[in-house]
Design a protein around this nucleic acid. Sequence first.
DNA 1: TCCATTCGGTTTCAACTTGAAACCATTGCG
DNA 2: CGCAATGGTTTCAAGTTGAAACCGAATGGA
Lengths: 152, 152
Amino acid sequence: MVKRTSHQSADCLIARPLDAIGDWWSLLIVRDAFDGMRRFGEFQKSLGVAKNILSARLRNLVAHGILETVPAPDGSAHHEYVLTEKGRGLFYVLVALRQWGETYFSGPGEPYTFMVDRESGRPIRRLEVHAEDGRLLAPGETRLADFRLQPE
Amino acid sequence: MVKRTSHQSADCLIARPLDAIGDWWSLLIVRDAFDGMRRFGEFQKSLGVAKNILSARLRNLVAHGILETVPAPDGSAHHEYVLTEKGRGLFYVLVALRQWGETYFSGPGEPYTFMVDRESGRPIRRLEVHAEDGRLLAPGETRLADFRLQPE
DNA sequence: TCCATTCGGTTTCAACTTGAAACCATTGCG
DNA sequence: CGCAATGGTTTCAAGTTGAAACCGAATGGA
């Protein structure tokens, strides 16, 4: 075996992100970070993940610029992990995954949790994909195109 | 070791979806399926993945109702893999991941590929998260809430 | 002061997963 | 009939994961 396959250098811009966050734990760490968690111990408790794994994942997320470490504000020797701009960019991925989960993975009769506007407490709208001119695009109504030279 | 950790029964509706698609290959298979691929060989060639792994992933995606097998239209004994409704629901996840990739993972001077409207060939708009009343929500301006009883 | 505890990890090691390559069963075709 | 293509499964070494033990630096209390 050469090595677990990496998509670091794949052409596809879906494959490359998966290299950074493409495992079970990383996205959950990011989710918790959006929920305000910052400390190693908080993540560990929330996720129930083994410490070595958490350690490796945090290191990887920091290496990819998704989290960054900042000195702990309480003056302790430890540091905290906070989302970078790039990390906050994962918000839309989380929302998409979440809405998919709400639609297809919530058991009947199960306490239904969903994403609400923090301000009003009301559910948010479903994500939509729009063309440049505003038309709503259904799944599959897109394709990929090269723009080596900016057209027009 | 008990078993590789599963989030099947996690409360969180972000964790549970990750159980279905939370590895490198599954989402790439779904991406290819959106691109019209249907045959084992097509996926294998496109992804360069070992056949045993592809086989296991396809089985898993079918088991989760993301793909389904249909008899091959050419009358051969083989079948094809096509996206179900649930599978097509992953469109928004792919778009979100893709836009994140476009923003943060495209090397400078690299041939820039992005998602365009199939009809017009023009780039699509960025995803936005909106509150019920239409207000634009920034990353972090949401939270999760329980709706055991429908409020209002 | 000294012992205990918490926090944030690293190390160790067995079980599990991954991937390359070999193998196998059907069908298609000349 | 023979041979290649398709769509897998099997095998096995190497890599990854996870539970638990360990460790070192700071507090925290008695």
